[in-house]
Design a protein around this nucleic acid. Structure first.
Lengths: 196, 196
DNA sequence: TTGCAAAACTAGCGCATATTAGTTTTTGAT
DNA sequence: ATCAAAAACTAATATGCGCTAGTTTTGCAA
């Protein structure tokens, strides 16, 4: 049967990962089957195991790759000399841009990570909590410096993270709103709500 | 074995539904098994079928009960004589309150509805789209009346709905923030961001 | 105390799953 | 043309699933 097609600069494993992200997003990790994934790649299910170790490894790869990218960005922002508001804006824009350009992977990392097996489940959970905590510190600093309104920092972070996560439901509306317009309007909404 | 316990004013079917909502939320609909649900109720799996028709019926009941409550509230708000901003505020508060008080069911309705079978899948999807569309109209009216900033209405609705949906991740922090404080701060953030 | 319906049980069917083992085909460099 | 490695295949295993059938137990009303 036909070989797994992979774009010129991607390995076959990456081709599998890409299809897996789409499938996991569409059907959910548990309901997605390796047979289905194989069919999507034009291949029989056992052939997949020439490239990958297991179904759970696919989920692991997707989740931690995305988590790492967000974390790298966070560190970059933390080390900048921007104002608190500018830092928050930068993080919001990164979330929006990454979510729009890496739709399937971001969705899986956000919604299917709970199917990770231990110890990876706990590792990922700590990752999230740490990320959230460091955003709270960013907000707290902004409040102390009188840049940001004195709302409860955790609520502010939750509101922001939830709002950008909601872009996963964005899909079919691309025709009516340009990505740049979406990004600017959402940033405006979220920042105007907390800027002093 | 022990009978299924149900609170004084609830039927046994409702007891099953309540546990099902918790289980579907924790493990996801597909990964949750009827055997597991039965154990949580102190019973063997086939006994459940004395009360319910099928696993998918459980999901259906949870999703449409919640959807209906949100819809009833929406109609009430639409028919009021409040300003546009007050209408939006009212809807945001309803979302927050319902999410906090009906945690598991709201989570399932928001995240697991995609496992509904046709024709219920499409019915639920139309429900959501209709709800969203009517919120957009509310926003558009507010912009025309010069109450609300001229951001793209769809983006505004997406931001608001996403933010309140994020309360599903609220859980463990109840000790540090009172629900009333949470509600007021989130409402403040979301409304200040769009009020003219 | 009897009788009957509600609600539990045990056994098991049919099906789908992830994965392994072993084998064959395809591919590309020499 | 050769030959080894890469990548596909077929077959099968063990497991778990939702659910049904048929039977026994339980609990309340008479």
């Amino acid at each position: 049967m036909a070989k797994i097609k992979s774009g010129n600069n991607t390995t076959k494993k990456e081709a599998v990962l890409e299809k897996a992200a789409l499938l996991f997003k569409t059907k959910g990790y548990s309901a997605a089957s390796m047979r289905e994934l194989a069919i999507a790649l034009g291949v029989e299910a056992p052939s997949l195991y020439n490239y990958i170790g297991s179904k759970t490894e696919l989920l692991h790869s997707i989740c931690f790759k995305i988590a790492n990218e967000f974390f790298v960005n966070l560190k970059k922002v933390e080390n900048s000399t921007d104002s608190s508001i500018a830092k928050i804006e930068s993080i919001i824009r990164f979330h929006i841009q990454t979510t729009l350009s890496r739709f399937n992977e971001v969705y899986v990392a956000n919604h299917e990570w709970k199917h990770l097996k231990e110890p990876f489940f706990s590792e990922f959970l700590n990752f999230r909590r740490n990320y959230e905590k460091r955003l709270i510190i960013l907000i707290e600093t902004g409040i102390e410096k009188n840049e940001i309104k004195n709302l409860h920092p955790y609520v502010t972070v939750l509101t922001i993270l939830s709002a950008v996560r909601g872009l996963e439901f964005w899909h079919g509306h691309k025709k009516n709103v340009l990505p740049q317009e979406l990004e600017n309007d959402m940033v405006s909404h979220l920042l105007n709500g907390i800027t002093k």
